[in-house]
Design a protein around this nucleic acid. Sequence first.
DNA 1: AATGATATGTTATAATGTAACAATTTACAG
DNA 2: CTGTAAATTGTTACATTATAACATATCATT
Lengths: 165, 165
Amino acid sequence: MSENRVLVPFKENGHAHQRCMESALTVAEQTCRARGVRLTNIRRRVLELVWRSHEPVKAYDILARLQDEHSGSAPPTVYRALDFLQTEGMVHKIESLNAYVGCGDPNHMHIGQFLICRDCGAVAEMDDDDVRILLAEKAGNLGFQIDREVIEIKGLCAVCATEKR
Amino acid sequence: MSENRVLVPFKENGHAHQRCMESALTVAEQTCRARGVRLTNIRRRVLELVWRSHEPVKAYDILARLQDEHSGSAPPTVYRALDFLQTEGMVHKIESLNAYVGCGDPNHMHIGQFLICRDCGAVAEMDDDDVRILLAEKAGNLGFQIDREVIEIKGLCAVCATEKR
DNA sequence: AATGATATGTTATAATGTAACAATTTACAG
DNA sequence: CTGTAAATTGTTACATTATAACATATCATT
């Protein structure tokens, strides 16, 4: 079994989220600079708000916070920033929740596989080649060529499973 | 390779959709009778409209057709019927499209894996145990117990790939 | 026919997302 | 440093998707 890459883990004991978030922001800044694209104030702020927790964040929740800070914010403000961040691989949309999560690895372009806890709402991101390979093979049996996968798995994370006992 | 079950195939040569749809309706009626739930006129009609093609159908498109036939139809009419049909396993929602497709196998409760052609828009449904097992294993490595999977794969189907040449 | 459960009708509104065009800011060529 | 084009943001309006809440009707059973 080759890969079990975990890009964004579930919150473990002693998870220092402040640091986790700062690191994501730093990587984002470096990546944008390297690519010659602009992480403007709005985009940066939206990325921060997405990273406030490991739960998926809704566009209109982001908007509400932006409006607290700057009344000129409107839906397009948020959706444009989210579009940019998704294009640059810094944010993923969770389609089944209409919500957005920060990506742990913007440098390596990919679309991950998400594990979503039904209890705490946290999301972990995997990027597993075995899964990708198997799906490509199964789809290939039907003559189907894969462009892009949406894989969103609902269930119970280890922390919540423990607490249930 | 144990399973490569295809519940709803892509439209192949000579696909007689009229028959395909009638068969789905018949199965639905039998299933409902067996379960003691009611496939009312509205629900039956919504199921027919979902099965009009192999492309995912939008709730408000269904609504528009219902309103042609009966002016008393409103969003809840459609969403209630869709809820019922999803609960009974006769319809699946494609989360990434906000649209609905008929299920080829309502008797065996499951949530399939969908292949969505970017060209013709058609959707095929697989229900593959190998995929399910691998995902369960990978998630299990993180201590995650799976309840439900959303797997929606975008790409090019065999028919459209052939036509491209 | 009376009753309770299920289903539908109806109105209103919430939640999510985009179009279109104006104003501003930025990068950078001259 | 200034003019200009490109990129970004502001602004208004609207489109799309979905649900809440309560009234009415229909169904299954006594």
